[in-house]
């Protein structure tokens, strides 16, 4: 069944996307069109089929436990929006 405004609002909240009213409206229509397209999946019988997560069936490669990364704070924080005393600043986190 098609998505409602409430569904889109929930998804937008989960995805941390601030959708303005009219944009949410347009998005709702487009999302339902896209969902209509992917609905076709349901028709296929896939009982007993192993899901394919990776295109190649390789095993995880493990690296040796070595410290290889020097301190690069200076460079890594060059483009940071808000930094103080080496910390990234965000609006107060409430717990």
């Amino acid at each position: 069944m098609p998505l409602t405004d409430a569904d889109v609002a929930r998804l937008a909240r989960l995805a941390r996307l601030d959708l303005s009213g009219e944009q949410a409206q347009r998005t709702l229509g487009q999302l339902n069109a896209v969902l209509g397209l992917i609905e076709q999946l349901q028709a296929v019988d896939t009982r007993g089929v192993e899901p394919m997560t990776h295109p190649t069936d390789m095993a995880l490669r493990l690296r040796p436990d070595e410290v290889t990364e020097p301190d690069g704070r200076e460079r890594y924080q060059q483009g940071a929006p808000a930094v103080e005393q080496g910390l990234y600043l965000v609006p107060r986190v409430i717990e």
């Binding site: 690296r63 436990d65 070595e66 410290v67 290889t68 990364e69 301190d71 704070r73 890594y76 924080q77 005393q85 080496g86 910390l87 990234y88």
Partner: peptide, 20 residues
Amino acid sequence: RSKIFSGASTAFGAAPNTQA
């Protein structure tokens, strides 16, 4: 010694973000 997915040190107490 190093992190689970990177080669950064796991030592405790370094200056902020110098082991990121």
